[in-house]
């Protein structure tokens, strides 16, 4: 993987907050948005903005260059995702039926966004996995984190993370839906 935002570029932008913030946002916002979408949060776009509102003012305090910044960004994203899931569990959304909004011939806004950003089948693939396997897989191949970084974010050992990713891949292999999805 080649990052356009290198350690040298990050160092050069120190002191110029406007350009630094913009470069960091452009480098990670899409991946954070994809990660949160894969995790099934209620409003991925709004939560992505919340993540960067928390990250950008603290960039100067982050060490470790681009790698450290990536870990920090997805640590915040992971924490926001967990909060969102807890909120959904505590207060599931109940909305009154409004006839004027019952336009069955068109997709819901969320479904439309999902179709626009990614095929629904991709999210369905992740839906076959248990929560922790899904989290490991998302952080590994969507966020682009190493096993060490994923272990740090999830608060698990690297061995546990490797075990989870192995189980996740076996689950996908055994599931017939995977074969149907990749079949021409």
């Amino acid at each position: 993987m080649t990052d356009a935002l290198t350690d040298e570029a990050l160092q050069a932008l120190q002191g110029n907050d406007a350009e630094l913030f913009s470069a960091v946002y452009q480098a990670f916002a899409g991946q954070v948005f994809g990660y949160l979408s894969a995790k099934g949060v209620q409003d991925p776009e709004a939560l992505t903005q919340d993540v960067f509102l928390a990250v950008l003012p603290r960039i100067d305090a982050i060490s470790g260059g681009v790698k450290g910044l990536r870990t920090f960004v997805f640590s915040v994203a992971h924490a926001r995702m967990v909060d969102d899931h807890r909120r959904q569990v505590r207060s599931p959304e109940h909305q009154e039926f409004e006839a004027e909004r019952d336009t069955r011939e068109v997709l819901s806004a969320e479904a439309e966004a999902m179709d626009r950003v990614a095929p629904g089948e991709v999210l369905a693939l992740l839906g076959f996995l248990p929560e922790e396997q899904r989290e490991v897989l998302s952080l590994r191949i969507i966020a682009g984190l190493t096993v060490e970084q994923v272990a740090e974010i999830m608060g698990k050992s690297q061995g546990a993370v490797k075990q989870l990713q192995r189980r996740a891949l076996n689950t996908l292999r055994e599931h017939s839906a995977v074969k149907e999805y990749v079949a021409p």
């Binding site: 899409g30 991946q31 979408s37 950003v117 089948e121 991709v122 969507i142 999805y181």
Partner: peptide, 24 residues
């Protein structure tokens, strides 16, 4: 299948709004 899942990382960045837009 995994490459399809990894494709979610290529989503465009959402347009910033509100406080984030002011910050940027």
């Amino acid at each position: 299948a995994l490459e399809s899942i990894a494709g979610l990382s290529a989503l465009p960045a959402p347009a910033p709004r509100g406080d984030l837009a002011a910050l940027l």
